[in-house]
């Protein structure tokens, strides 16, 4: 009880900080914080596919790209943002569903390479289909939407829009992983054969894990486009997919808060460590390697082990304390 109370308090404090912090930041600081919110959405999606359902995907960056292009193309053609967002969601859900089919046939590194190939193919389409994407010149002037009559063109309102999106996505995924679906995803990750024998339709859940995870990548892209106000192929290379993967793993795959933490490290830390210039990426890469050697389940994995150990100690102390009482009752 005290633990869940502490978790609630920490959650409220975190949310309050996210609402109040940008008031003290300049334009660029707010931009970076918005970028964090967007990348967190994409990482939450990947965490669902990889962390909960155990299906590796090296294509999350491509779905961010699909979402970004959907919004950029539609809003610059005069459609409202919500139409773009809906299209981003629908297209990335559908493509993610299709990408799930290979996962029914192959696993592990083969699946990694199929998704890797898909990621590169998507990049080629972004770059080459000029009639749709304007190729390497990119789509300029992606407008920021008005929400309920409030324009979000300025950094602060747009940040709150991104934060709102993150809140909605977080709630939805929090609900999902606690629903029977979340339990079925974990079963799929831990032992698909046994899950199947208990009536879990592993095919359908695998496809759903891919589709929903990818759809969240698309949602992230839908907010990325108006955030940057310009969409070209360069951000959506394989590097983005690998980056998102590292965010999930560093934070802690399969932990609800893992993506928040992972994105925090990957997006905000470079800004604080700007004095390191190019060395920053080297330091980050070395940090990831050291972390994985120490704890393959990421930062939250360390925390989780620590808490479990403490709880076990507390429980055994409680048992030790309880024993004499039982004895005295018997006597």
């Amino acid at each position: 009880m005290t633990r869940s109370l502490a978790a609630w308090l920490a959650g409220i404090a975190g949310a309050a900080a996210l609402v109040l912090l940008p008031l003290a930041l300049n334009r660029y600081g707010i931009y970076i914080l918005s970028l964090w919110a967007v990348m967190t959405i994409a990482a939450i999606g990947l965490n669902l596919t990889l962390g909960y359902a155990g299906q590796i995907s090296l294509a999350q960056g491509a779905f961010v790209g699909i979402g970004a292009y959907a919004v950029a193309i539609l809003t610059t053609s005069g459609f409202p943002f919500v139409v773009g967002l809906a299209a981003a969601l629908a297209v990335s859900f559908a493509v993610g569903w299709l990408l799930g089919y290979p996962a029914l046939r192959v696993q592990h590194h083969y699946l990694a390479f199929v998704t890797l190939a898909f990621s590169t193919l998507a990049y080629l389409v972004f770059r080459n289909e000029e009639w749709l994407t304007k190729g390497i010149y990119g789509i300029v002037g992606v407008p920021r939407p008005s929400v309920l009559g409030i324009a979000t063109a300025k950094p602060l309102p747009f940040y709150y829009l991104c934060l709102g999106a993150l809140a909605v996505v977080s709630f939805a995924v929090w609900w999902l992983v606690r629903s029977p679906w979340g339990r079925a995803f974990v079963a799929l990750r831990e032992n698909p054969v046994r899950a199947l024998s208990l009536g879990v339709d592993t095919r359908r859940y695998t496809l759903m894990a891919f589709a929903i995870g990818s759809a969240l990548g698309g949602v992230a892209g839908a907010f990325y486009a108006p955030l940057v106000e310009f969409v070209d192929p360069t951000p959506f290379t394989l590097a983005l997919s690998l980056n998102l993967l590292m965010m999930v793993i560093v934070g802690g795959a399969g932990f609800f808060l893992g993506p928040f933490l992972g994105a925090l490290i990957a997006v905000l830390l470079p800004e604080w460590l700007r004095f390191m210039e190019g060395w920053y990426l080297i330091a980050y890469a070395v940090f990831v390697m050291v972390l994985l050697v120490i704890s393959p389940t990421g930062i939250l994995g360390i925390l989780d082990r620590h808490l479990t150990a403490r709880r076990t100690r507390a429980a055994s102390q409680a048992r030790a304390a309880a024993k004499p009482v039982l004895n005295s009752e018997a006597a």
């Binding site: 590796i56 993967l245 590292m246 190019g278 990426l281 890469a285 070395v286 390697m289 994985l292 393959p296």
Partner: peptide
Amino acid sequence: VLPLAIATMALSIALKE
């Protein structure tokens, strides 16, 4: 397999940079 694969991704960044 997976953590090691990801560590080598990080290694590739480290070597490149």
